[in-house]
Design a protein around this nucleic acid. Structure first.
Lengths: 194, 194
DNA sequence: CGACGGCTTGAGAATACTCAATATCGGTGG
DNA sequence: CCACCGATATTGAGTATTCTCAAGCCGTCG
């Protein structure tokens, strides 16, 4: 996708909803649909968005003609698996304040990674209900946690925009996972010239 | 892997642990390590286990020479992504009793899928501490929830073995996720003869 | 202006956690 | 064979976190 925010979501029988992942510009969204005839998640646009649609058949020819690209694609899937596991740890093993902090730091850093973002201020186009579905909290509790983060001087808020004031401290609250995330491509064949 | 139980785990800075996935016979474990020089998770054997080790370089030649297999591998990665998302929904949006029920039903059904399991009785070789790290609960609370499931007549326990007495009702408590999980392989090229 | 959706705040209830004591089990050494 | 040990399991009591319900607020859109 190229611009805007999407998210995938799944509905539980009791009406609860979980948002397993946010899709920001530069991401490949909805790839999980590859393996199923019916998409396993709903995809929702949180803002106006510009996406590029890829047909399943394109994947097939990519695997047949571009093995190196296919490998990279597969490696990317592993990266996303680890990202999902991180989120799992966040929801399963950290308190509410940390989860909200995680949501904010993650979004900021991913916006930066794509290149469009430089400072600490960005628009978070999710309702608190949606933020709760990401973090496994209720909207009310998301609200309270954000207020705490503001009171701590870690972030500032003005209608939908979030300004991260102390990213280090926020990140420290957010995700205390130790990991050495060096991407390893040495097992891949050399890139073609050019 | 061929026999036994493994699990991957990640350690948080505060000493907490999360187990993002269990690996049962027939699974491909540790594939997430493909993209990193240092494995993102620890892999622990919960029982004696027999595994077959695959070198990263083998993946490379597989992608170059067996595009169809590579596609299936990639599709499998998507299946696991959905499985992780399901677990996320379980931890983020269901109460403790449901999470423990999910752990049990999931394990049983996966053991069946590989072919080795037929009845409702199986050995759960995890301590309650480990079960808690899977479900995002404390060991003490896992214990209480299991007792509730026993009192409800859904399972029976005898030192490490679990007998599922009413799988339908257990599954209903466990995972109220509606999904049509039809595997779609129509976008793949036809299988080679034989 | 009024209606609506989302945000904010408070109070009380439910869920899950912590701490602590006891029980059980498998193994180990006398 | 028996006593002991460490690790795990079980149970209780009190606490903390998060949820639910409810009310009021705020900005937007008609």
């Amino acid at each position: 996708m190229q611009r805007g925010w999407l998210y995938s979501s799944m509905l539980l029988a009791d009406g609860n909803r979980q948002i397993p992942s946010l899709h920001l510009p530069g991401d490949l969204a909805g790839e999980a649909a590859l393996a199923w005839a019916q998409a396993p998640f709903a995809l929702t646009a949180a803002t106006d968005a510009v996406v590029h649609v890829i047909d399943k058949v394109v994947f097939r020819s990519l695997f047949e003609r571009q093995p190196r690209l296919a490998m990279l694609l597969h490696a990317l899937a592993q990266v996303e698996r680890v990202a999902l596991s991180d989120r799992l740890a966040s929801i399963g093993r950290t308190p509410a304040k940390a989860r909200v902090a995680t949501l904010i730091v993650d979004a900021l850093r991913r916006l930066r990674a794509y290149g469009g973002q430089t400072g600490g201020e960005f628009s978070l186009p999710l309702t608190q209900e949606e933020s709760g579905d990401v973090t496994g909290l209720t909207a009310v509790h998301v609200n309270r946690m954000m207020r705490l983060l503001v009171e701590d001087g870690l972030i500032a808020r003005t209608n939908g925009c979030i300004c991260v004031l102390d990213e280090d401290r926020l990140a420290q609250i957010a995700r205390p996972i130790d990991r050495y995330q060096t991407i390893d491509t040495r097992w891949l064949p050399p890139a073609p010239a050019g």
